[in-house]
Design a protein around this nucleic acid. Structure first.
Lengths: 196, 196
DNA sequence: GTCTATAGCATGATAGAC
DNA sequence: GTCTATCATGCTATAGAC
């Protein structure tokens, strides 16, 4: 890592925080420059455009995340254990990369606004297939209830996990492991008392 | 309802759809006018500003929603029945006012971007109190598991219910009642098989 | 690597004719 | 109630000095 690379990374970190807080469109190039202590024109020495910045932020994060998913899937755990690990991995990602997750949630989802991020949709499909295969395997092996619509279960899990980025604060009272524990307990066992 | 009022409502409906699809900031006054078949300047005969449009859209919806909540809370159902009714009510709101819910989810949440919507935060607190009192009552009466963090359960329920606006499509294969059934089943009983 | 200066464009909003 | 025309502003991005 040269000094140039470090500066790039620092600027991307600053931009990511602002994008996460205010949204991509709502964050101006001048905002980013001001937060970095330079003027807007100077940013273009490091990056081609505002879009190339968010592009680099998201693609870097996405690559890390899917590499981690790959490790879990390649293991020989059973479906339920894999499912738990993927959930824990996701809360860990929220803990360690909250800005990136927030940008995904807030900006990369809008149908019209991010046509150029088609590769994100592809990865979304890939992610869905991972979850669906785990859920189906869980049903087949008898670990999960057979009477539920797995597609619906998938959407509930996906949304609930990622949307936690809206309220989870790294370094707060709850660790990402605590949140994952409680979440998995609710998801797997439900909130009704077992005596009910 | 005069013709003037109808025209207002029609324009607001058009604007709400665009705000929901592309986001508030991403939707231009010219976009709204074009979708309505008029020119941008003409919109200002009906509304003071773009913000006043989204203001009216959200406050109208919010009033309807909280009125419906009020009916449930005023009933003499027990906590679990009320909880189920509030969940069903929320999915019904997504079915009948998807644009409004989407705007809430996508735009009214950003901390920095919507300072003028302070009243939404107040309502958010009110909504949280409703849920927390229901959950606490459920725990006290033995209907719900006592070992869970109710604040976390609240956030889990709130997020999962409302985020469904991202994929639920009115008139599709699943009715809002179907979704509510499955969701409540997952939430209350969990996805693990009971033999597990 | 940052600054000065500015081009070029899109935006929210206004005034007055019809 | 809509259109024509336009203003003022803020935006992304560029060019060249330092």
């Amino acid at each position: 890592m040269t000094a140039t690379t470090d500066r790039r990374g620092e600027l991307l970190r600053i931009a990511a925080t602002l994008f996460a807080e205010k949204g991509f469109k709502n964050t101006t190039v001048r905002d980013i420059a001001e937060a970095a202590g330079i003027l807007s024109g100077s940013l273009y020495h490091h990056f081609d455009s505002k879009e190339s910045m968010v592009d680099e932020i998201l693609s870097t994060f996405r690559a890390q995340l899917f590499a981690a998913y790959g490790d879990v899937l390649a293991s020989d755990d059973d479906a339920r254990a894999k499912l738990e690990r993927v959930v824990r991995l996701s809360f860990e990602a929220i803990d360690q990369h909250p800005a990136e997750v927030a940008i995904f949630q807030n900006d990369a989802d809008h149908p019209g606004s991010f046509e150029r991020f088609g590769y994100l949709a592809e990865r979304g499909v890939q992610s869905r297939d991972i979850w669906l295969s785990l859920l189906n395997e869980g049903v087949e092996t008898g670990a999960l209830r057979p009477d539920l619509d797995v597609h619906l279960v998938y959407r509930f899990i996906r949304d609930t996990v990622w949307v936690a980025v809206r309220w989870y604060r790294p370094g707060g009272d709850l660790s990402h492991g605590d949140v994952a524990d409680q979440y998995l307990s609710i998801l797997l066992e439900g909130i009704a008392s077992s005596a009910d």
